[in-house]
Computed example of a mutant assay.
Amino acid sequence: MCCRNSNQAKPLRPPVNALGIWGFFVSLFGLVFTLGAISPIGLILSLFAMFHPRRGFAVAGMLIGIVGTALIAAIVGAAAIAADTYHHYAHEVPQIEQTLAKLDDAIIVIETDRHEKGELPEGVDGNKLVLPITDAWQQSLRYEPADSGEDYAVRSAGPDQKFDTADDLRMAPTAH
């Protein structure tokens, strides 16, 4: 008679990877219903579940969590770019335009002085002429005569309010 030996041990299956299942469902729910907002939580759960022997749900949760996290990162990034663009055009561009008009006013003052005196003012005298004119950031303009004595420019320190940086606004007369 051939019987089954009841003393023979059955191979043990590792227990279910509950953390992997949770990670999978949180990642999937986050991607489908929250546009990825909670997918990073599912991604983290799935990453921890990768240390368990049964990794199927953990791998799937990790991949879905990565997609959901990338989606939320793209949404947040697009919103940040849109906010920065709005700020630039709503605030910075009008200030730049206002400052360019003030630079033009300063050139008119310098040219009027040149016409009256027959020559360009020296550096200090030219700066005294443009000192009362302020840019959009309430900073005085700077007169910059060229070494030749024939040309000059007028400069605003720009938004950072520091001269000789990349955001300075500079204007030179077009014709004498």
Rank of each mutant, 00 (worst) to 15 (best):
M50S: 11
I107A: 01
I81R: 08
E116W: 05
R155Y: 07
H87F: 10
F57P: 00
L28W: 12
P173Q: 06
L120P: 03
D84A: 15
Q139E: 10
T134A: 05
W22D: 06
H115Q: 07
L141E: 00
A9Y: 00
I108K: 14
E119V: 14
N17G: 02
A49W: 00
I96F: 10
P145C: 03
A106W: 01
W137L: 08
V16Q: 07
N17Y: 05
E144K: 06
S27M: 11
P159W: 12
L45D: 00
A60C: 11
Y143N: 03
R155D: 12
H91E: 13
K128W: 03
F163H: 03
F33G: 12
R170I: 15
E122S: 13
A37T: 10
G118L: 02
I38S: 09
A37Y: 12
Q139H: 09
D147T: 15
G36Y: 01
H176S: 11
Y86N: 11
A175P: 01
V26H: 07
L71R: 13
A79E: 13
A79L: 12
Q8K: 10
G42V: 12
D151M: 11
G65P: 07
A157D: 03
G20L: 05
D104H: 11
A9K: 09
L63V: 14
Q139D: 08
K117W: 13
G149V: 09
F33K: 15
H115N: 09
E122D: 14
D84H: 15
A136S: 10
P121E: 00
K117Q: 15
I72E: 04
A157N: 04
I110V: 08
P132G: 04
A79P: 05
L129I: 04
T99R: 02
G56E: 13
F51N: 14
V67Q: 08
E111P: 02
L19Q: 10
I108A: 04
F29L: 10
A9M: 05
A146H: 10
P145H: 05
N7L: 14
M50G: 11
T99A: 00
A82Q: 13
I64D: 05
G158K: 05
E119Q: 14
Q8W: 00
G149N: 09
H88M: 14
E92W: 13
D151C: 04
H88F: 15
E97D: 13
S156N: 02
S148A: 07
L47P: 00
P145D: 05
H115M: 06
V32T: 13
L120E: 02
A73S: 13
A73N: 09
A18W: 15
L71G: 02
P121N: 01
P53K: 08
L47K: 07
H176Q: 15
A106K: 04
L103C: 03
Y152G: 01
A172F: 09
A79S: 12
M171E: 09
L63F: 08
K128H: 11
A101Q: 12
Q95S: 13
A58F: 10
T134K: 14
D125H: 09
L12A: 15
I81E: 08
V154P: 01
R13D: 12
A90K: 06
F57M: 13
A37L: 14
D164I: 01
I133L: 15
A74L: 13
I38L: 14
T69S: 13
H52Y: 06
D113T: 00
N127I: 05
P94I: 04
F51M: 14
D147G: 06
